Simulated assay, not measured.
Amino acid sequence: MKTRMIHMSPPQTLISVFTLFITLGTFLLKLPSATSNGITFMDALFTATSAMTVTGLVVIDTGTAFTLFGQIIILVLIQVGGLGIMTFAVLIYMVLGKKIGIKERLLIQQALNQTSLGGVIRLVRKLFIFSITIEALAVVFLSLRWVPEMGMAKGIYASIFHSISAFNNAGFSIWSDSLSAYAVDPLVNIVITLLFIIGGIGFTVVFDLWRSKEFYHLSLHTKIM
Protein backbone atom coordinates (compact mmCIF):
# COMPACT_ATOMS: atom_id res chain seq x y z
CA MET A 1 0.00 0.00 0.00
CA LYS A 2 1.52 3.28 -1.10
CA THR A 3 1.53 6.27 1.21
CA ARG A 4 0.15 9.40 -0.38
CA MET A 5 2.24 12.51 0.17
CA ILE A 6 0.45 15.65 1.23
CA HIS A 7 1.56 18.59 -0.86
CA MET A 8 0.73 22.03 0.45
CA SER A 9 1.22 25.43 -1.10
CA PRO A 10 3.47 27.96 0.70
CA PRO A 11 0.49 29.83 2.26
CA GLN A 12 -1.00 26.52 3.48
CA THR A 13 2.33 25.50 4.96
CA LEU A 14 2.69 28.82 6.80
CA ILE A 15 -0.82 28.52 8.23
CA SER A 16 -0.11 24.94 9.31
CA VAL A 17 3.12 25.90 11.07
CA PHE A 18 1.41 28.84 12.77
CA THR A 19 -1.35 26.50 13.96
CA LEU A 20 1.25 24.04 15.25
CA PHE A 21 3.06 26.73 17.25
CA ILE A 22 -0.22 28.06 18.67
CA THR A 23 -1.23 24.55 19.73
CA LEU A 24 2.15 23.92 21.33
CA GLY A 25 2.00 27.29 23.09
CA THR A 26 -1.50 26.54 24.37
CA PHE A 27 -0.47 23.28 26.01
CA LEU A 28 2.69 24.84 27.48
CA LEU A 29 0.60 27.64 29.02
CA LYS A 30 -1.70 25.02 30.51
CA LEU A 31 1.18 23.46 32.46
CA PRO A 32 0.95 24.02 36.24
CA SER A 33 4.38 25.69 36.22
CA ALA A 34 3.19 28.29 33.68
CA THR A 35 0.44 29.88 35.78
CA SER A 36 -0.08 31.03 39.35
CA ASN A 37 -3.51 29.44 39.92
CA GLY A 38 -4.25 27.67 36.65
CA ILE A 39 -6.21 28.91 33.64
CA THR A 40 -8.90 27.48 31.38
CA PHE A 41 -8.05 25.90 28.05
CA MET A 42 -9.81 28.71 26.17
CA ASP A 43 -7.79 31.37 28.01
CA ALA A 44 -4.57 29.52 27.20
CA LEU A 45 -5.59 29.14 23.55
CA PHE A 46 -6.61 32.81 23.26
CA THR A 47 -3.36 33.99 24.87
CA ALA A 48 -1.17 31.76 22.69
CA THR A 49 -3.03 32.84 19.54
CA SER A 50 -2.82 36.53 20.47
CA ALA A 51 0.91 36.26 21.21
CA MET A 52 1.77 34.26 18.10
CA THR A 53 -0.21 36.53 15.79
CA VAL A 54 0.86 39.67 17.73
CA THR A 55 -2.76 40.76 17.94
CA GLY A 56 -2.42 42.71 21.19
CA LEU A 57 -5.46 41.27 22.96
CA VAL A 58 -5.41 39.72 26.42
CA VAL A 59 -8.18 38.10 28.46
CA ILE A 60 -6.22 37.66 31.70
CA ASP A 61 -3.54 39.67 33.48
CA THR A 62 -0.19 38.56 32.07
CA GLY A 63 1.77 39.73 35.11
CA THR A 64 -0.31 38.04 37.80
CA ALA A 65 -1.84 35.04 36.04
CA PHE A 66 1.42 33.71 34.57
CA THR A 67 4.65 32.72 36.27
CA LEU A 68 8.06 33.65 34.90
CA PHE A 69 8.01 30.44 32.85
CA GLY A 70 4.59 31.28 31.42
CA GLN A 71 5.66 34.83 30.56
CA ILE A 72 8.74 33.51 28.77
CA ILE A 73 6.54 31.17 26.71
CA ILE A 74 4.41 34.18 25.73
CA LEU A 75 7.55 36.17 24.91
CA VAL A 76 8.91 33.41 22.67
CA LEU A 77 5.59 33.20 20.82
CA ILE A 78 5.64 36.98 20.32
CA GLN A 79 9.19 36.95 18.98
CA VAL A 80 8.66 33.98 16.67
CA GLY A 81 5.32 35.31 15.43
CA GLY A 82 6.59 38.86 15.05
CA LEU A 83 9.82 38.13 13.20
CA GLY A 84 8.29 35.23 11.31
CA ILE A 85 8.58 31.48 11.58
CA MET A 86 10.52 31.26 8.34
CA THR A 87 13.12 33.71 9.63
CA PHE A 88 13.99 31.34 12.47
CA ALA A 89 13.73 28.30 10.20
CA VAL A 90 16.27 29.79 7.79
CA LEU A 91 18.62 30.67 10.65
CA ILE A 92 18.43 27.09 11.95
CA TYR A 93 19.14 25.80 8.43
CA MET A 94 22.17 28.08 8.24
CA VAL A 95 23.51 26.95 11.61
CA LEU A 96 23.09 23.29 10.65
CA GLY A 97 24.71 23.93 7.28
CA LYS A 98 21.71 22.62 5.33
CA LYS A 99 20.84 23.73 1.81
CA ILE A 100 17.81 25.98 1.44
CA GLY A 101 15.81 24.80 -1.56
CA ILE A 102 13.24 26.41 -3.82
CA LYS A 103 10.31 25.32 -1.64
CA GLU A 104 11.81 26.99 1.43
CA ARG A 105 12.58 30.12 -0.59
CA LEU A 106 8.97 30.26 -1.78
CA LEU A 107 7.81 30.07 1.84
CA ILE A 108 10.15 32.91 2.78
CA GLN A 109 8.92 34.96 -0.17
CA GLN A 110 5.32 34.49 0.97
CA ALA A 111 6.14 35.22 4.62
CA LEU A 112 8.05 38.43 3.85
CA ASN A 113 5.70 39.69 1.11
CA GLN A 114 8.47 39.71 -1.48
CA THR A 115 7.78 39.80 -5.22
CA SER A 116 10.81 37.70 -6.24
CA LEU A 117 12.97 34.88 -4.90
CA GLY A 118 16.20 36.76 -5.49
CA GLY A 119 18.07 37.67 -2.32
CA VAL A 120 15.44 36.38 0.13
CA ILE A 121 18.03 34.52 2.23
CA ARG A 122 20.19 37.62 2.51
CA LEU A 123 17.06 39.59 3.38
CA VAL A 124 16.22 37.17 6.21
CA ARG A 125 19.71 37.55 7.65
CA LYS A 126 19.44 41.33 7.55
CA LEU A 127 15.93 41.19 9.05
CA PHE A 128 17.13 39.16 12.02
CA ILE A 129 20.19 41.33 12.68
CA PHE A 130 18.14 44.52 12.33
CA SER A 131 15.39 43.32 14.68
CA ILE A 132 17.71 42.01 17.39
CA THR A 133 19.81 45.20 17.22
CA ILE A 134 16.78 47.48 17.62
CA GLU A 135 15.43 45.39 20.49
CA ALA A 136 18.84 45.30 22.20
CA LEU A 137 19.22 49.07 21.96
CA ALA A 138 15.74 49.50 23.43
CA VAL A 139 16.64 47.18 26.32
CA VAL A 140 19.68 49.32 27.10
CA PHE A 141 17.69 52.57 27.18
CA LEU A 142 14.77 51.12 29.15
CA SER A 143 17.20 49.59 31.63
CA LEU A 144 18.49 53.07 32.40
CA ARG A 145 15.00 53.80 33.72
CA TRP A 146 13.96 50.50 35.28
CA VAL A 147 17.16 49.01 36.73
CA PRO A 148 17.61 51.84 39.27
CA GLU A 149 13.92 51.50 40.18
CA MET A 150 13.53 47.70 40.34
CA GLY A 151 17.02 46.29 40.66
CA MET A 152 19.25 44.60 38.09
CA ALA A 153 17.34 41.33 37.41
CA LYS A 154 13.78 42.71 37.42
CA GLY A 155 14.76 45.89 35.59
CA ILE A 156 16.52 44.07 32.75
CA TYR A 157 13.72 41.49 32.47
CA ALA A 158 11.07 44.22 32.28
CA SER A 159 13.15 45.98 29.62
CA ILE A 160 13.52 42.80 27.55
CA PHE A 161 9.84 41.86 27.80
CA HIS A 162 8.48 45.28 26.87
CA SER A 163 11.07 45.85 24.12
CA ILE A 164 10.12 42.61 22.36
CA SER A 165 6.41 43.18 22.95
CA ALA A 166 6.51 46.76 21.64
CA PHE A 167 8.76 46.10 18.63
CA ASN A 168 6.49 43.26 17.51
CA ASN A 169 3.34 45.32 18.24
CA ALA A 170 2.10 42.58 20.57
CA GLY A 171 0.57 44.79 23.27
CA PHE A 172 1.50 42.48 26.18
CA SER A 173 2.79 43.85 29.47
CA ILE A 174 3.87 42.19 32.73
CA TRP A 175 2.13 44.91 34.77
CA SER A 176 -1.60 45.08 35.51
CA ASP A 177 -1.79 48.75 34.48
CA SER A 178 0.42 48.14 31.44
CA LEU A 179 2.65 51.24 31.08
CA SER A 180 0.16 53.71 32.59
CA ALA A 181 2.53 54.42 35.48
CA TYR A 182 5.00 55.85 32.95
CA ALA A 183 2.50 57.95 30.99
CA VAL A 184 4.56 61.11 31.55
CA ASP A 185 8.01 59.49 31.48
CA PRO A 186 9.87 60.88 28.42
CA LEU A 187 12.39 58.03 28.10
CA VAL A 188 9.83 55.20 28.27
CA ASN A 189 7.41 57.02 25.96
CA ILE A 190 10.03 57.79 23.31
CA VAL A 191 11.55 54.29 23.31
CA ILE A 192 8.24 52.41 23.28
CA THR A 193 6.77 54.72 20.62
CA LEU A 194 9.79 54.31 18.34
CA LEU A 195 9.62 50.54 18.77
CA PHE A 196 5.95 50.50 17.75
CA ILE A 197 6.60 52.70 14.72
CA ILE A 198 9.74 50.92 13.46
CA GLY A 199 8.32 47.47 14.12
CA GLY A 200 4.96 48.45 12.66
CA ILE A 201 6.19 49.67 9.29
CA GLY A 202 8.48 46.64 9.06
CA PHE A 203 12.08 45.90 8.16
CA THR A 204 11.50 45.65 4.44
CA VAL A 205 10.11 49.19 4.38
CA VAL A 206 12.98 50.58 6.47
CA PHE A 207 15.53 48.79 4.28
CA ASP A 208 13.83 49.99 1.11
CA LEU A 209 13.83 53.60 2.36
CA TRP A 210 17.52 53.29 3.28
CA ARG A 211 18.44 51.82 -0.11
CA SER A 212 16.25 53.92 -2.41
CA LYS A 213 16.62 57.68 -2.27
CA GLU A 214 13.94 58.46 -4.87
CA PHE A 215 10.24 57.84 -4.20
CA TYR A 216 9.58 56.22 -7.60
CA HIS A 217 12.31 53.64 -6.91
CA LEU A 218 10.47 52.39 -3.81
CA SER A 219 8.47 49.16 -3.91
CA LEU A 220 4.68 49.29 -4.00
CA HIS A 221 4.55 47.87 -0.45
CA THR A 222 6.78 50.68 0.84
CA LYS A 223 4.77 53.36 -0.95
CA ILE A 224 1.52 52.06 0.58
CA MET A 225 3.03 51.87 4.06
Rank of each mutant, 00 (worst) to 15 (best):
114 Q>Y: 04
191 V>T: 14
155 G>E: 08
30 K>T: 11
96 L>W: 02
142 L>C: 15
145 R>Q: 09
9 S>A: 11
225 M>T: 14
167 F>C: 10
220 L>G: 14
148 P>F: 11
65 A>R: 13
150 M>G: 03
145 R>N: 13
136 A>C: 10
172 F>S: 12
8 M>C: 10
214 E>P: 06
99 K>W: 13
74 I>E: 15
149 E>H: 13
20 L>H: 09
155 G>L: 05
204 T>S: 11
46 F>V: 06
98 K>I: 09
19 T>H: 08
217 H>F: 07
37 N>H: 03
13 T>I: 15
92 I>H: 01
156 I>R: 00
149 E>D: 11
146 W>T: 08
209 L>G: 08
67 T>M: 06
180 S>I: 15
106 L>M: 12
183 A>I: 15
217 H>A: 14
122 R>V: 12
150 M>H: 05
96 L>D: 09
92 I>L: 15
3 T>H: 10
71 Q>W: 01
30 K>C: 15
68 L>E: 04
160 I>M: 00
101 G>P: 01
219 S>N: 06
115 T>P: 02
86 M>N: 05
122 R>Q: 04
223 K>I: 13
208 D>K: 06
49 T>W: 07
48 A>Y: 05
130 F>P: 05
105 R>M: 15
6 I>E: 04
57 L>K: 07
156 I>T: 13
